[in-house]
Amino acid sequence: MAVETRAVARPAAKARPRPRREREEEVLVWPDLVFVEFIAATLFTITFLMLSVFINAPLLNRANPELTPNPSKAPWYFLNLQELLLHMDKAWAGVLLPTIALGFFASIPYIDRTRSGQGVWFGSKNAVRLTLVSAAYSVIVVAALVSFDSGDRTYTEQLTRWIPSCNAEAQHQGLPCLQDAEGEAHTGFLSTKDISKRLQFSVPFPNALGVDDSNLDWPGDLDRIPVPFNNVCGNVGSFHLWCDMNLNIPSIMAEQVIPLSTVVGLAVAIIYVLFRVGWLRTKRDLFIVMFTAVLVSYLALAMVGSFFRGEGQNLIWPWEIKVDEG
């Protein structure tokens, strides 16, 4: 009976404006919330007591500054930064990118100021799809970039093997070529670092700017470009001025420009595609894609660092990991 009456009453109730305080929608914190909290706390206490009874926290040998374990690893939540160190300039990997990520997090609510879609999971139209696509894309991108950057272990160096070996005798390498280590077979790019270490080429260039043989050699002529005012030396307080500061263009290319523009380019690409497909329409959509990508990449890189890096930070399978504790 009661159910029937309700069903009839519904349409009328709907037309009524929403009450300012929906008292009838509220429950008392004691017992409804306190009970849930109590159960959650009890379950966690029991779980962690059990875990602690059965699994011991690691305690290795006493710290010895003379013996470096190989590999030495940061705690898992910083292993992603340690992983990035292998692929790009250390200031970007360790400090600048994390700072940018945190700044991005903090600025989200100041840029996406719409109020709609709050208070429910994935409250906007395409939220779930965008999250899934972004998460999958990030995993694939991380896996692909990490693999590419360890060519000799993932065989991606075969993609660039067509670049010829350098002629060691030639004074200038006209066309781009790769310098191979002595006695080693010719390979392609083992990692992006090879762009500054092994790639060589020369272009005819007017004699100026330190070039005196009508040829601009990569990397030889470009690895010590003085910055303006690099003869200003000394300290201001404890802050040292740039004294004798030179730019190493090949290494800036290999460790900053290429890795960063790859990351930014891949991010812009997925955002553009999702925009063209019509799934990404609002700032909220954009942030769902970006937030998911940052967090999933953070996690994926930590996984690579935890499970796929062995001695000498070489890329290996998880079951091959053994730590040489020195």
Partner: peptide
């Protein structure tokens, strides 16, 4: 704990 794990993880940091 000042063991090898501790020292070298913090050295990375």
């Amino acid at each position: 704990p000042w063991d090898q794990l501790a020292l070298w993880a913090v050295t990375v940091g």
